[in-house]
Amino acid sequence: MADHLPLEFAQLVAIEAIAQAARAHQPPPLPPPLHLLPSIYRPDCAANDRVRLWFGPNPPPSSFLTRDPLFAYLRELGANNSLAVQTNYGSALRKYHLFCDLFSVEEHRRLPSSFAILQSSSLRTIGTIGTDTVLKYLSAVSTWHVVQGFPRPLLPQQLEEVKFTLKGLARIMPTRKRPPRPPMTINNLRAIKLQLDLTSQFDSAVWAILLCGFFGMMRLGELTTKKKDSFVEEEGLRRRDYEIGRDREGTGYGILRLRRAKTLAVGGGTQDVFITQQEDLCPMQAVNHLQQLVGGVDVDVPLFSWSKDGVVRPVTRSSFLKRVNGILIAAGINITFGHSLRIGGATFYLSEGRPVELVRIAGRWKSLAFELYIRAFELSVEPLETSSEVPSARLG
């Protein structure tokens, strides 16, 4: 039963159990590498044994005339001696299951796998490793199927389609140093909120940044500063840069006027980001709550700020990451911030049925990176956020 629970639910349960530790503001100093979620189907073993010892809940189809154990023994003996570099297979299998964990692919859908899952996992790696390496990973997953007694998961024409797509993307997208970040989800946000002390100015500032970044699809550098004394130099968001308006129906919305952004030309004025009223996770309420806590009437102080010893300070990127990642790491959630917040908001809007082009424009994307995320999202068998517990969102 545990293997079929949604990943976000398992994370929520785990994070509630570490409330006291998280509130102590004592996160581990550095985020650990991504870890596979525990599973009876993936016993702890050496990398070169994974292709044999890792399995799934589905029984393989019968491939013998009788149940004589001799046939099964001979088949296993032949399969094991046919394997080449088993360590490479083990590394590829680990990456495959990490992808499945991050995108909440249930155990029974991993073996046998599907064209949608395998192509999605392939597209997520493009730009981080070469096309040949991606195809080797697919070959390893295919071999794993055979060793476990299943047919190869990709038909020849499906493999050709994957090759064709990867070849084209490799021509126009340079290799990245790191893979795309897994997206933040609504349930992740709710889990983080449980551990934040919203009577604290700093935690309230962190919460406002999370919601504005998620629903506004903003870059973390647009919401935080590199150093506590570089706010003016970086032209960070001030209180005067936040305005509230109402649409024709009388519904309130907020405008964040960026003076400095990645897609804003030098001397090009400002760039507006719209945030709208949500239900239980409302960025406008979070900003209003923060301003009431910090107090004061100076409109030139940082919008996302907190005071210490009577001095109003901006939230730095490092302090924000330390606080949020401390909660996530303690809960064993395989997310570290970068574009996780930004792409999480985009993924949420897409799962709500918002037009792809509208999401791209609202998120101010101009590069191929957005198309890669969208392609992987569309090929997922089930979207990340499709349950009725997700609140209906307004986009701009």
Rank of each mutant, 00 (worst) to 15 (best):
D3K: 04
H4A: 09
H4P: 00
H4N: 07
L7T: 12
V13A: 10
I15W: 10
A19L: 15
H25A: 13
L34H: 06
I40H: 08
R42A: 09
P43H: 10
D44G: 05
D44M: 04
C45S: 13
A47Q: 04
R50F: 03
V51D: 02
P59D: 11
P60M: 11
L65N: 04
L65I: 12
T66I: 09
D68Y: 02
D68L: 05
V85C: 14
Q86D: 11
L93N: 11
R94Q: 15
Y96S: 06
D101G: 13
L102C: 11
E106D: 05
E106H: 12
E107A: 15
L111R: 11
I117N: 11
S121M: 13
R124D: 15
I126L: 09
G127A: 04
T128E: 12
K136A: 10
S139A: 15
S139D: 07
A140W: 00
S142I: 02
H145L: 09
V147M: 06
Q148E: 01
F150W: 14
P153G: 08
L155V: 06
L155W: 10
L159T: 05
E160A: 15
V162D: 00
K163Y: 00
L166K: 12
K167Y: 09
G168T: 05
L169I: 14
I172F: 13
M173R: 12
P174V: 02
P174T: 10
T175A: 11
T175P: 04
P182Y: 00
P183K: 08
M184V: 08
N187C: 07
R190A: 06
R190N: 09
L196N: 03
L196P: 09
T199H: 03
T199L: 05
S204F: 00
G213P: 10
F215N: 01
T225Q: 04
T225P: 09
D229K: 07
S230G: 03
S230A: 13
E233F: 08
G236D: 09
G236N: 06
L237G: 07
L237K: 01
R239F: 03
G245P: 00
R248T: 11
I255D: 00
R259K: 12
A261H: 03
K262H: 09
A265L: 12
A265D: 11
V266L: 14
G268H: 14
I275H: 08
I275M: 09
I275V: 15
Q278E: 14
Q278M: 09
Q278Y: 10
D280I: 10
P283I: 07
N288I: 13
H289S: 14
H289E: 03
L290W: 07
Q292C: 09
G295S: 12
G296M: 13
D298Q: 08
D298N: 14
L303M: 07
S307E: 14
T316G: 03
S319R: 08
K322M: 08
I327K: 05
A330S: 12
A331D: 01
G332I: 10
I333K: 03
F337K: 00
H339W: 01
H339D: 14
S340D: 01
R342G: 10
G345A: 05
F348V: 02
L350R: 07
R354M: 12
E357Y: 07
L358K: 13
I361D: 14
W365G: 00
W365V: 04
L368H: 14
L368M: 13
F370Q: 01
E371W: 02
F377H: 15
L379F: 05
V381F: 06
E382F: 06
S387V: 02
A393Q: 02
L395D: 04
